[in-house]
Simulated assay, not measured.
Amino acid sequence: MRSRTVIAAVTAVLATSGLTALAAPAQAAEYSSALKLYGVQYDAPGRDDNRCSGGNTKNEYLTVKNYSRTTTVNLKGYVVKDATGNRFVFTNNHTLQPGDYIKLRGGNGTDSDANNVVYRNNCNFIWNNPGDTVYLYKPSGAGADSHSYTKTGSDPDNNGYVKFHG
C-alpha cells in the first residue's frame, strides 16, 4: 500500500511540473538473458563478394556479449537467426566470461575462444544490407535477445555497423 501511495505522489509531482518519468527500455524488460546482441556489422566493408576464397563475408559479423557480472555462459546450443530464417547453431563449447564477447563471422576460419571468434563456415552473407531482424535464442528455445535495424534508420554514419547495447 505504501509503495502505491509513493508512486502516485511522485507521478502527481512529475505531472504538475510538466516532467515525465523515465521508463526502462522495453528491450530490457522483454528478456532476462545474460547474453545480448551487442551489435552487427551488416554490411561488410568493400564490394560484397561471397566467394569462399578472396570474398569478404568474414568481414560481416554479429557480436554477442555476456552482460552478466558473475555468470560464465557456454554458447553451445544457442541459435542465431535472421528474419528470413537463415540460422546458425553454436554446436561447440564456447564460454564467455562475465563482460566477454564473441564475434560470429561469416566465411570460413578457425574458431578461437582466445581470439573471441566463431566462423559460420558459410560464405553467403546472412544480414541484409537494407535491414533485417537478428534473433538470439537460448538452447531451450526461449528468446534471449532480438533487434531489428534498417540501413537508413539505424546507421546514421553509414558505416555498415549498428550497435544494439552499450
Rank of each mutant, 00 (worst) to 15 (best):
L22N: 14
A24N: 13
A24M: 12
P25Y: 12
A26L: 11
Q27T: 15
Q27R: 15
Y31R: 02
S32N: 13
S33H: 09
L35I: 06
K36C: 08
K36D: 08
K36M: 11
L37W: 06
Y38G: 08
G39Y: 03
V40P: 03
V40L: 03
Y42L: 06
Y42F: 10
R47E: 13
D49F: 05
D49P: 02
R51S: 15
R51T: 11
S53T: 14
S53C: 10
N56K: 14
K58R: 15
K58A: 14
K58M: 12
N59D: 12
E60M: 07
L62A: 05
L62Y: 07
T63H: 07
T63D: 10
V64Q: 03
V64K: 09
V64P: 04
K65M: 13
K65Q: 13
N66M: 06
N66F: 03
Y67I: 03
R69F: 02
T71C: 05
T71G: 04
V73N: 06
N74W: 00
N74I: 00
L75P: 03
K76H: 03
K76V: 01
K76I: 01
K76M: 01
K76T: 02
G77T: 01
Y78G: 01
V80M: 07
V80A: 05
K81E: 15
D82P: 05
D82K: 04
A83N: 12
T84L: 11
G85Q: 06
G85D: 08
N86C: 07
V89R: 09
F90E: 02
N92F: 04
N92G: 14
N93A: 09
N93P: 06
H94N: 11
H94C: 10
T95Y: 11
L96Y: 06
L96P: 09
L96Q: 04
Q97G: 07
P98L: 05
G99H: 09
D100Q: 10
D100K: 00
I102L: 09
K103R: 12
L104D: 01
R105K: 11
G107F: 08
G107W: 08
N108P: 02
G109C: 00
T110C: 08
S112R: 08
N115A: 11
V117N: 02
V117C: 00
V118F: 02
V118G: 04
Y119E: 04
Y119P: 02
